[in-house]
Amino acid sequence: MRDISTKEITEVVKRLCRDAACELGEDVKAALRAALEREESPLGRDVLGQIIRNFEIASAEEAPMCQDTGLAVFFVDVGRDVHMDGSLEDAINEGVRQGYREGYLRKSVCDPFTRENTGDNTPAVIHTRVVEGDSIRIRVAPKGAGSENMSRLAMLKPAEGLKGIKDFVVETVGVAGGNPCPPIIVGVGIGGNFEWAAILAKEALLRPVGRPNPDEVLASLEEDLLEEINRLGIGPMGFGGTITALAVHVEAAPCHIASLPVAVNIQCHADRHKEAII
């Protein structure tokens, strides 16, 4: 049994929130630079040039790369040999509270009816799992609403099969057009049930951009989908172009014999995700 203080968890979460907002990961930077090389539209290249300059300025000046610093989404793997001196959820929310305040990040969480802002960007969305070991792995993905609002879920009929899945993913990206700030990363969750499919799609976005699924069948589906999506012509910011998506990440799980759930979670080019292990 290893003791981990909730104070330490709060400190780590606070740092992760601030870092995520200002410093894009090397995987996303490399994917955007490669996109600039490959984009055929001159206007598309102009947009990609602005996006690249933007993340360079954000990093150099420790400024948020996007004003929508998002709803803070966490995936937390807690080792079964860890003992904490308080509530994990409270510790994470306190880290979000401090990180968003001290990092001058925008507080974007409100009551769904009155629209009154909660004032501190809490509550965070927290997915927790108990795993082997005596450490805690915390992954954060602050998610803006522009791309989240373009995400969709379908309960397909099993008879619709692979074609139905592909059609739904490509259609979702097509309907989204320029709204989710392309070039996007497309997270796809197939199987499970209603909420599991959505969580799979979200977690798929946390994989380093462009790293294929280790399962060959899913990796090949990712490739096919990326090609089809980039044939849509939406391009950077929807102004037309050959790079609509930087990557498609697919995760799958077994589902009910009568179901075929498919969730598509769209991520904008400001694909912020950070990780720490305590």
């Binding site: 602005q50 996006i51 300059r53 300025i57 400024a63 004003q67 320029g178 910011m237």
Partner: peptide, 13 residues
């Protein structure tokens, strides 16, 4: 008119 979404640090300047 559209500005480049996400280019928030650049536009700030």
């Amino acid at each position: 008119l559209a500005a480049v979404g996400g280019a928030a640090a650049l536009i700030k300047k």
